[in-house]
Simulated assay, not measured.
Amino acid sequence: MSSVTTATNTRELAHPARDEIRLECVLHALSDPMRMRVVRALATTEDELSCSHFVLPVTKSTTTHHFRVLREAGVIEQVYRGTAKMNGLRRADLDALFPGLLDNILDAARREAGRLGDDA
């Protein structure tokens, strides 16, 4: 993604502005089962969740990669709160740009997880 806003210091993470979020980047970010698992968990709460909240069956470096892809696509927002990196779903931005997309994808993911018996 070429138009990611830059961070102003080492504790701030770069995020695309709302008008820089592109559909193909969002769909790519959501195409991975581990990233979809993160988004599904974030969609169940209004609160931010720390990275340590998520237990994914991949290495820590791969987990970090998944969060970066989601952030750079504009799907999540990450901020440091003390030493914790907190994650929140950018639902308002996604709903404004692509009305109904996130809800439909989350519903399809929920139905697929039920069909496959994988409610993680």
Rank of each mutant, 00 (worst) to 15 (best):
S2L: 09
T8C: 08
T10R: 10
R11W: 07
R11K: 13
H15G: 03
P16I: 00
D19T: 07
R22P: 15
L23I: 09
C25E: 15
L27Q: 15
A29F: 00
A29D: 09
A29S: 11
L30G: 07
D32N: 13
P33Y: 01
P33W: 01
M36Q: 11
M36C: 06
V39I: 05
R40Y: 08
R40L: 09
L42F: 00
T44D: 14
E46Y: 10
D47Y: 11
D47I: 05
E48Q: 15
E48L: 03
C51R: 12
S52M: 01
F54E: 10
P57E: 09
S61M: 09
T63L: 11
T64I: 01
H65C: 06
L70K: 05
L70S: 07
R71D: 07
R71M: 03
A73N: 07
V75D: 08
I76Y: 03
I76F: 03
E77Q: 08
R81Y: 10
T83D: 14
A84I: 08
K85G: 10
K85V: 10
R91F: 00
D93W: 05
L94C: 02
D95Q: 06
D95E: 14
A96W: 14
L97Y: 03
L97V: 04
G100Y: 00
L102K: 00
L106W: 00
D107K: 12
D107E: 12
A108E: 14
E112R: 12
A113F: 09
R115P: 11
A120G: 12
